[in-house]
Design a protein around this nucleic acid. Structure first.
Lengths: 208, 208
DNA sequence: AATTCCAGAGAACAGTTGTTAACTGGATGA
DNA sequence: TCATCCAGTTAACAACTGTTCTCTGGAATT
């Protein structure tokens, strides 16, 4: 079923990706609501009007960035929660996975953290929707665990949201520590690990 | 020692407050990094150049807003954590206090949530510093609790940060539910309450 | 009463912004 | 081969931006 794109479509997608890349770079030092259309086209090296061939507005571009940043993350989230091993191993592995992701895609993480409560409504809504999906998926994985026996659906979703939010808090901490010395990164790892451990303890005594 | 301000100083402070109020209102629909100096002066009803009599830049104004939004919050945080009563009562009271604060100062809460990871470095730093102070204060209160016996300083601070972050997550949820029907606000209250309860359970079994 | 001070006004500056319209030239499909 | 399509270009628009310098009039100081 894989149909090779025509030269034309291929070039268009390439330009579109250049817009996304340039915007993401520019957004490291500002918010989406101050990102100018001309600013982006200048960075890409095309005429301002070329922008409209791909996006209606910078808000539209922002929504596309949300998909790029979070869309491909779903498989990882599933495996993060569902990995086997005892509780302590799973925590260590989850934190490490987050740290690696921040190292690999710092600009994406910064964008999501920044625009989650940012000044552009459609983008906020897109992030909210994706995070709700994450929570649903985490909930599904949690439900498979024998520890979830006796838990109501509501409580499972409550815990899933807690995990998702904690994941973002941790990612944001790693982001701030990106340029910091290894010592500081280790401090963050320890903090995040113990916070997750505490939540995990609360989880195992929830039904007491 | 209270010295009545001269007419001149009084008028200046009044104008300064008008700047803060106008900026806060404008920031409900955008981020600080896109807030224009002329935009603010127009809203206040003064000449653009008057801005410089009070602030070096919009970033400077942002830092002043952080102080206004968080500076007066310290006493409340202390009482939130230190209130007497059993665990369940304290949780209910804390959530209610957050809900009331969001109702009373929605724009302040929105500003902090938005600019905590926003595009203006000095403002991010100011918020980070204030939240670190909050965490220290929460830690001090936690240490007074008999339940904290045997806890290391590091673990207490870890828990304090967890509480502070959870407080912000909850505040942000109430903010999104501000215009929503009472039913939705009740749902948020239930969610936040159970999350805090789970953390509280983890806390009480931490030393097991 | 005379002098200094200073919050705010006014005008002007070079640059920037988003959006429109009409175009070009190479890929596409008949 | 020839007509159609369409990603990207060019030019122009009114409106807006931050910042400078100069000025003013009433409060503050002497």
């Amino acid at each position: 079923m894989s149909h090779t794109l025509g030269i034309r479509q291929a070039q268009k997608q390439k330009t579109r990706q250049a817009f996304l890349d340039a915007a993401l770079a520019l957004l490291e030092e500002q918010s989406l609501s101050s990102l100018g259309l001309r600013e982006v086209t200048r960075a890409v090296g095309v005429a301002p009007t070329a922008f409209y061939r791909h996006f209606r507005s910078t808000a539209d571009l922002g929504v596309a960035l949300v998909d790029e940043a979070l869309g491909s993350l779903h498989p990882m989230v599933r495996t993060t929660v569902s990995t086997t091993g005892d509780s302590e191993e799973r925590i260590t592995r989850a934190i490490e996975l987050i740290a690696r992701h921040v190292d690999a895609y710092p600009a994406h993480v910064r964008f999501i953290a920044r625009e989650r409560h940012g000044g552009v409504q459609p983008v906020r809504e897109a992030i909210r929707a994706q995070l709700a999906r994450f929570a649903e998926e985490v909930k599904t994985e949690l439900a498979k665990d024998p520890e979830a026996a006796g838990w109501s659906d509501d409580d499972l979703l409550m815990l899933a949201h807690l995990y998702v939010d904690q994941m973002l808090v941790t990612a944001s901490l790693f982001l701030e520590a990106l340029e910091a010395p290894e010592e500081e990164r280790e401090r963050v790892t320890q903090l995040a690990t113990r916070q997750l451990r505490l939540i995990s303890i609360g989880r195992s005594h929830w039904l007491d």
